[in-house]
Simulated assay, not measured.
Amino acid sequence: MKIRIKGNSIRFRLTRTEVKVLCTDGRFEERTEFDNTFFSYAVAISNEVRQLTARFNDNTITLLLPKNELGDWEANDEVGFQNMFRLDNGKELFLLLEKDFACLENTAEDQSDNYPNPKAC
């Protein structure tokens, strides 16, 4: 899973395997270790939310996706989900959860588990 954070915008990209785990298990999480602590990022399916939502607790960003929106995301062509999430302090946080497509240009990154890029000829 890749994350991109810029200002009040968070984007998560999931490979095929990660989407499959999310659809099967209802959660996918990764962790980055530091000397004495860690930072985690996760996606979870929830019956308690009505739209893509974010939580930050215990050094973990979790995107919560309503169960009824997930459907057959693993098998369909839907790229992802997005929401402009209003925070308790009145500010907004843009959330984007999407499938990770292979890059069109050469890259040293392993892309063997990425979705085929629809823009590739």
Results as ranks from 00 to 15, higher is better:
K99V: 11
Y41E: 10
L22F: 05
F94N: 07
T107P: 01
L95D: 03
N114L: 05
L14G: 02
A75W: 14
I10Q: 00
T62P: 03
E74G: 05
K91I: 10
P116K: 12
T53E: 10
T37K: 10
E18F: 01
K91D: 10
N57T: 08
A54V: 15
T60I: 04
L95G: 02
C23W: 03
A108S: 12
S46H: 06
A108M: 10
I45N: 11
R55W: 03
K119L: 15
D110Y: 08
L14C: 05
C121N: 11
V49W: 03
T53P: 08
I10A: 00
L14K: 02
K91R: 13
A108G: 09
V19I: 07
D77N: 14
N8K: 01
C121G: 12
K20D: 06
D35I: 14
N36I: 08
K91N: 13
T107K: 00
F85S: 03
F94M: 07
L97M: 12
P66K: 12
A44M: 14
S46I: 14
F12A: 01
S46R: 08
D35T: 13
I61Q: 04
Q51S: 15
C23L: 06
N57Y: 05
G80T: 09
E105D: 08
L93T: 02
S40D: 11
F12S: 00
G7Q: 00
F39T: 04
M84S: 14
N76Y: 12
T15S: 10
P116Q: 12
E30M: 07
F38G: 09
N36G: 14
N36P: 00
N36T: 13
D88K: 13
L96A: 13
E78P: 02
R11F: 02
S112A: 01
C23F: 02
F94K: 03
G7M: 00
G80P: 03
N106I: 08
S40K: 11
L93K: 01
T53V: 11
N83T: 08
K2Y: 07
E69Y: 07
L64E: 06
M84I: 14
Q82R: 14
V49G: 04
Y115L: 00
N59A: 10
A108V: 08
N47L: 11
E69G: 05
E33D: 13
E78W: 05
E33T: 05
L87P: 06
V49D: 06
T32D: 08
F12V: 02
A120W: 12
V21W: 01
F101M: 11
V79T: 15
L64F: 09
K6N: 12
V79I: 15
C23A: 09
V49P: 03
E98N: 10
N114M: 05
E69R: 12
D110N: 09
E109S: 06
S9N: 02
L52F: 08
V21M: 01
D88T: 12
D72A: 14
L93P: 01
R16L: 02
R86K: 13
Q111V: 04
K99F: 06
M84P: 05
A75E: 15
